[in-house]
């Protein structure tokens, strides 16, 4: 078993943080968002093709939109699954990790800001699951996911014959009409792009500074956690 590798360094313990469903969720989500950003951007600013062709010979823009809508469904149901898992999954994937209701979480956020971001203090900051700042950011991202789905399916209600998007139609007038919904939807794309940039950087960064295998944790599920002198290197397996 992998535990053996660990024994090489008595100062680390190995923890199974990300269960397989969370990992599948994560990569499905990342892929869906990539596709949605690409197709969404094209929907907002399509390439113009100078062509004498009849419209009936081509359907590329329709296809781009089709892919967007399919990816939109994937994104939505994947997200719904993650919410479900927030209630049944292991302690690290629980919903309450993400909502900063406890004082401890706020203190954690401050710590991360001081140590990681502004680098005011030396030395690593450590947690087992997400650090407090990361969880809060994810929470904000989840909220953004909700709005992206509300605006996306809300707009889609006007163009889809299906009953499902119609469930979201009520949302559009609340924000002041289709154009406003579109505007929010478009802006949120940039929120996700910025999030992804920072997120990916920070993941690598933590790996670099804390040597905790966080990057691969989203692949294998395991994370290395430093053990203090009074602890023994051990494996915490929550599968």
């Amino acid at each position: 078993m992998e535990q053996n590798i660990l024994k090489l360094d008595p100062k680390l313990k190995l923890v199974y943080v990300w269960q397989q469903p969370v990992r599948i969720y994560h990569w499905t989500n990342a892929l869906a968002i990539l596709v949605l950003c690409l197709t969404g951007y094209l929907i907002g600013a399509p390439l113009a093709i100078q062509s004498g062709a009849e419209a009936s010979y081509s359907y590329w823009f329709g296809i781009v939109r089709f892919i967007h809508f399919v990816a939109g469904y994937v994104f939505f149901f994947n997200f719904i699954f993650r919410i479900y898992w927030g209630f049944v999954g292991n302690e690290y994937s629980r919903w309450n990790n993400y909502i900063p209701l406890k004082k401890k979480q706020w203190k954690g956020i401050l710590e991360v800001l001081k140590i990681d971001i502004f680098q005011l203090k030396l030395g690593p900051y450590e947690t087992v699951g997400h650090n407090a700042l990361a969880s809060t950011t994810y929470f904000i991202t989840f909220i953004a996911f909700v709005f992206q789905c509300l605006t996306g399916f809300g707009m889609y209600a006007a163009m889809s014959p299906s009953w499902f998007p119609k469930l979201f139609a009520w949302f559009v007038p609340l924000v002041g009409g289709d154009l406003a919904a579109r505007h929010i939807h478009h802006l949120l794309m940039w929120v996700f792009i910025l999030f992804a940039m920072i997120h990916i950087y920070l993941v690598f960064y933590h790996d670099f500074i804390e040597r905790n295998g966080v990057t691969s944790s989203m692949i294998g599920g395991w994370k290395f956690i430093e053990v203090h002198d009074d602890e023994k290197g051990e494996v915490k397996d929550e599968r």
Binding site: A48, Q50, A55, S56, Y57, Y59, W60, G62
Partner: peptide, 17 residues
Amino acid sequence: RPNYDAGLFVQTFDDEN
């Protein structure tokens, strides 16, 4: 609308498109 779906767009007023 068929031009929209086909991705055929006017670029500036009074251009070929």
